[in-house]
Amino acid sequence: MSQARLIQLEADILGKNNGYAAANRARFAKAGILALNLVSSPGSGKTTLLCRTLALLAGEFPCAVIEGDQQTSADADRIRATGAPAIQINTGKGCHLDGHMVGHAVDHLNPPDASVLFIENVGNLVCPAAFDLGEAHKVAILSVTEGEDKPLKYPDMFAAADLVLINKTDLLPHLDFDVDLAMANARKVNHRVRLLQVSARTGEGMAAWLDWIRGARLMALSGRPSQAAE
């Protein structure tokens, strides 16, 4: 297959996905749902952080979760144990979620109006960067057990993120990870990105993370057609 044909196929795939993503985004906007696409490498602590987040937000407003993994329902089971509804998408050999998968998952999950929908993408810093799911924001999670150069090695992902959470900060005393350098590298590829340091284990930075979610949710609610007309 020629290079030109490969490029055309990629454009067709992304174009089709963008159509599904646009439909998801319109659906979320109409319902005042804040959709967040959580992206990271495998083992960054996404699920643990999400479980802690859901526990802290319990009773404040409804939350729901779409879990993406190649196999197993382990992460969705952990999420459901917090009391939040969750649906698992197993992508098999696929390395990312796409707009079509998310649309079907939302049909089954049926999150209530004015809720927050967390989409935990497949652990991968390459493919998910190119696939819009209809989310309001991509949130990239960078663990301190990874290298400070991750934003430079995977610039597309960090350039697409509105927020970067530097996770597992409780491990910093045991590592040589340079937080300032990691933050500087993230800003090299995305000068507008916001960065927060968090630890699900100790609770460090969780208040700022929750405040960010609350603010983003208010923005989602302000865009609802029914509210705009009031």
Rank of each mutant, 00 (worst) to 15 (best):
T53G: 04
V164K: 01
S115I: 06
L172P: 00
I141W: 06
N110Y: 02
D149H: 06
L142V: 01
L163M: 07
K93F: 15
K153P: 06
L133F: 11
A161F: 08
T72P: 00
D156W: 07
N185A: 13
L109R: 08
F158C: 02
P173Y: 10
E60N: 08
V189K: 11
C51S: 13
K188G: 14
P85M: 01
V144N: 09
L165S: 05
D98K: 00
A74G: 14
R52V: 06
D107P: 04
A130I: 03
D180Y: 08
G83T: 01
I141G: 02
I166G: 12
D69P: 03
L125W: 06
I79K: 00
A184D: 15
A159P: 14
H174V: 09
M157F: 02
L125F: 07
L57W: 04
A105N: 11
L54A: 07
A114Q: 11
F177V: 13
V122I: 03
A136G: 03
A105C: 13
G92E: 08
A184E: 15
D98Q: 02
L56K: 14
K93H: 13
A74R: 09
L56S: 15
L171T: 03
L152N: 11
L171M: 10
P128G: 13
H191D: 15
Q88K: 04
L54S: 05
T145G: 14
V139K: 04
H137Q: 12
P151W: 11
L163G: 13
C95R: 02
V126L: 11
E135T: 04
D113A: 11
D176K: 00
G83Y: 04
L117G: 06
C95I: 01
E135I: 05
E148G: 12
D149Y: 05
T169I: 15
V139L: 08
E135G: 08
D156P: 01
V102G: 10
I79Q: 00
L117S: 05
V164E: 03
N190P: 02
R187P: 11
L117M: 05
C95G: 00
L181M: 15
T53M: 04
V193N: 10
D77C: 01
C51Q: 14
N185Y: 13
E146W: 03
H104C: 12
K138Y: 04
Y154L: 06
P128K: 13
L117V: 02
T53P: 00
E60I: 08
V102Y: 01
T91Q: 10
I166N: 14
A159Y: 04
G99R: 02
R80W: 03
P155I: 02
H137R: 09
I141D: 02
V102D: 15
N90C: 09
P62R: 11
K138R: 12
L181Q: 15
L54Y: 03
P128M: 12
P173Q: 02
P85T: 01
L57P: 03
V179S: 13
H96M: 07
A186Y: 06
L97V: 08
